[in-house]
Amino acid sequence: MKAVILGGTSGMGREIARRLAERGDLLFLLGPRKKNLERSAADLVARHPDKVDVAFAPCDLLRPEGFSEALDAADAALGGFDTVIVTAALFATQEALEADVDLTQRLVTANFANTVLFCEHARKRLLARGGGRLCVFSSVAGDRGRKPVAIYGASKAGLSAYLEALDHKFHAHGLSVLCVKPGFVRTEMTAALQPPPFAGTPDRVATQVIRAMDRGKPLVYSPPVWAWVMRVIRWLPRFVMRRIGF
């Protein structure tokens, strides 16, 4: 596999990158902070069985004008990538978002509009070479409009819809699109939140996501129990959703 990862510097993206490196895949990192990319690249080099170089380039979800250049750099370094993974996203609590319109604008733009733009760049390049894999992290928060994640959830709902359509549209052309819907996973993103009883860990998610990518699956809930939780939530009638705080 020759994979580009946007968001591989921390959390679930970091674990996915590590697992791919350990099994000998070739990687290219994208992210907003150079120093952070440097450190993560060093980590992956040390873990790779053949100690191959891991290159990186800056790419900020809030600067879509840089996407093309970033993917050019990845193409050059990898000699044409066949996989693009996006774990990067912004997160803020509903209260914080309600209190700050600028933050809301940034989050919705990064998580929806610009992630879609980034995927458009990536999938065009993949389709031009006959296909490949696109693995993008959405969230269970996008499965139903819910009070505690009204804005963040909406940004992910839009992303999920886009990813599903991409799968329908280009599957026959050789593009395999995987939409990952994590439930609560213990990472820096959720460090300030109270974890629920079945909180996941990044390494478990990484194992599950890589298996799903290898098998060409279109959708994965992780940890798996969230598939059942969300099935129930989706079926709950409106009047119930109005009353509960979940």
């Binding site: 060093a42 040390a46 820096e188």
Partner: peptide, 16 residues
């Protein structure tokens, strides 16, 4: 715990 990156390993000397 989340700061767990290896920043360098020299297979010649074993320094990590």
């Amino acid at each position: 715990l989340m700061a767990d990156r290896i920043l360098g390993f020299d297979p010649g000397s074993g320094v990590l």
